[in-house]
């Protein structure tokens, strides 16, 4: 059976088609204001790119922040469950997942492919993709360059503000003091890695840990987290689609 997973995230919407034990195709796009429209567009684009019609697809499961507003979905499941299913499919040996997304970050303890416990960050942008987005802006650097810059730093700046708004002004004052872009970038990344690392340690994650979500594409961030946790992280080739993948797998039924 062919199934679909839609991950209606706060920043990006992901759609994925799945058959038996293989990914047929996927699509990632900006959510913008309207969850249902973004989901519909992404799904239609995906069907077109895979040369398929809606009728050929069985169940459609939604997940993500906008999961309950997707009218064409048959069911919705939480991101926690979705990521766990998706990541466990890609890496069956995984015992923990760190997901840093646009609006929140999560740490999941996985036992035999199931959620055993989880923790989400507070209602605050600290430790999320938003933190990097805002502070990269203050640094006048495209967000995609932030990780590369950080990796070439020798003396990471000390960023003490967890609050995104305060960190932005801290970046400006560091710039005024003549600290290099590389060192500030590395400081920002270390700050978020510490924050997320505390969550992971609190949940007892040690090894076989996967790192997913948009922020996992940031090589600097991966390196900083690995240093923080003392383990090599599993990062899927496309770390943004594990939620949609898990939803599509859940849509296959109990197997």
């Amino acid at each position: 059976m062919i199934t679909a997973g839609i991950d209606a995230g706060a920043a990006t919407t992901k759609a994925l088609l799945f058959r038996d034990r293989e990914i047929i195709g996927y699509r990632i796009g900006i959510t913008a204001f309207d969850f249902p429209t973004a989901a519909r567009n992404m799904f239609d684009e995906l069907l077109a790119s895979c040369d398929m019609r809606r009728e050929e697809v069985g169940n459609v499961y939604a997940t993500g922040y906008g999961r309950n507003s997707i009218s064409f979905a048959d069911k919705s499941i939480s991101e926690i469950t979705a990521h766990t299913k998706g990541v466990s499919f890609l890496f069956p040996e995984v015992q923990g997942i760190i997901d840093v997304g646009g609006q929140d970050s999560k740490v999941i303890v996985v036992e035999d492919g199931r959620v055993a416990d989880f923790l989400m960050n507070d209602k605050c942008a600290a430790g999320t993709g938003k933190f990097l987005e805002y502070t990269a802006k203050a640094l006048e650097v495209p967000i995609n360059d932030l990780g590369g810059l950080a990796l070439s730093s020798n003396h990471p700046a000390d960023i003490t503000s967890m609050c995104t708004v305060f960190a932005e002004s801290e970046v400006i004052s560091l710039r005024a003091r003549g600290i290099t872009k590389e060192d500030i970038a590395a400081g920002l990344i270390a700050s978020i890695a510490t924050r997320v690392g505390v969550m992971a340690k609190r949940m007892g994650l040690k090894e076989h840990v996967a790192f997913v979500g948009g922020v996992a594409k940031n090589g600097g961030m991966k390196a900083a987290l690995e240093k923080e946790l003392g383990t090599i992280l599993y990062v899927p080739s496309e770390p943004q689609i594990t939620g949609a993948l898990g939803a599509a797998i859940a849509a296959q039924g109990n197997r």
């Binding site: 922040y65 499941i77 991101e79 926690i80 469950t81 959620v115 989880f118």
Partner: peptide, 23 residues
Amino acid sequence: IESDYGDSDTEQIGIRVDAFLEM
């Protein structure tokens, strides 16, 4: 769950509760 009397975190609580019930 830590919360105040405002409604701003209704969605955040909702996702945690959904995940917990699924778990």
